[in-house]
Amino acid sequence: MVWFETILVVVTLFTGVVWLLDKLFLARRRKARGGLLDEEPVLVDYSRAFFPVLALVLVLRSFVAEPYKIPSASMYPNLHIGDFILVNKFAYGLRLPINNQKFIPVGEPKRGDVVVFHYPGYLCRNGEQEVRSQTGDCAMPQPVNNENWIKRVIGLPGDRIGFDGSALSVNGQRVAYKPLGTYEDPKSGVPGAQLLEEGLPGRSHWMLESQDRVLPPGEWVVPAGQYFVMGDNRDNSEDGRFWGFLPETELRGKAFLIWLNCSNWFCKDGFDPSRIGTKIN
């Protein structure tokens, strides 16, 4: 959530400046006037108390790990609606908060990684229907810069990705699939879907394929500095097949752990303890 990150940065800087000004100047002036050091303004008192906590949270959230909640069914069966996950913020380089500018390169995404990113496109309206576009070639496009999405990296820069409506090919090699049975969870949005193990080169993972939905075929050549991403719930995912490529500059980090599962923030409707501690493959 970009708005939360912005507020956190602003409040941290504000409390830090107030605390520093008091330490360097205001406390000395109070003492020179004969005042007691503990007779400090309320604002200074709160700033001195909260700044270290806010600074620690900002550093951890920006450069170590960020929490994120799964809002949709696009990554079933591996990530469920209500999963709270942790995102490794240094796996793909350290980035500044708010503008996401990389200042220390560390690594690059690998095929099969589950990544969180800023949606790199526009929201267009066709009557009452919302349509997403990476280029903004529509009437009155609105930039979408405050949404974090999660998908799996399928294509790396230079890869040729093919999709024939049900199966993938990577650089001309068809990906192997192993049937694992029927997946019945109604929350997936595709009840009765086929559970498959998809053997991406160097990484295999579970995915869902609907027996009733057939998406149109396509082929994409991934440009330099960009990635092609798809959801594991293959027939119920709005991903690169519809809006294009993911620029490296929009990456937020690599998802690696489920630490809680709740249908809402306060777990009013219960939670699934079996999801806690699950590693994201």
Rank of each mutant, 00 (worst) to 15 (best):
G172Q: 10
S166I: 13
P105D: 07
D232I: 04
K254C: 00
D45H: 14
S263R: 15
Y76L: 09
G231P: 05
I161P: 05
I104R: 02
E197T: 11
L215Y: 12
L60Y: 02
G181H: 10
G158R: 09
L195G: 05
N171H: 08
Y46S: 02
K279A: 15
L195K: 14
G202D: 13
E108C: 02
V87T: 13
W19S: 06
F84T: 03
L96E: 02
L260E: 11
N233Q: 06
D232V: 09
G158M: 11
L56G: 14
V44F: 01
E39K: 08
F228P: 04
Y122I: 00
I81G: 02
P41C: 03
F228C: 00
K187Y: 07
L251T: 04
F228Q: 03
G34M: 07
A73T: 07
E130K: 12
V115H: 02
F117A: 08
Y46P: 00
L123H: 01
G155F: 03
Y68G: 12
V144M: 01
L43D: 01
E128T: 15
L60M: 14
F90K: 00
E40M: 06
P186D: 11
L79R: 02
Q226V: 07
N264I: 03
N100L: 02
F84Q: 09
L168Y: 13
L20G: 11
S237N: 09
I154K: 03
F63L: 10
G192S: 05
F4T: 11
C124N: 04
F228M: 00
S210F: 09
N145I: 08
V106I: 15
L168F: 14
E39Q: 14
V229N: 01
L20T: 13
L60G: 08
V87H: 09
N146H: 08
N99W: 14
S274R: 15
R95D: 11
G202S: 12
E40L: 08
N264P: 12
G199F: 07
E5I: 07
W149F: 15
L43V: 03
P52I: 10
V2N: 03
N236D: 08
E197C: 12
K102Q: 11
L180P: 10
V2G: 03
R174L: 01
A139F: 10
L180S: 12
V153S: 01
G218D: 11
S133Y: 00
A176H: 15
N88D: 15
R275H: 02
A65L: 07
G270P: 11
G136W: 02
G16T: 05
L168W: 15
P179S: 11
G189L: 06
V64A: 09
L246D: 01
Q134K: 05
L37Y: 09
W265Q: 14
A49L: 13
G127A: 09
G112M: 05
F50T: 15
E39R: 10
P217N: 10
A255Q: 06
V17M: 14
V106G: 01
E238G: 06
V57W: 11
S188K: 06
V190S: 08
Q142P: 05
D38G: 05
L24Q: 12
A55L: 15
G121A: 05
F103M: 08
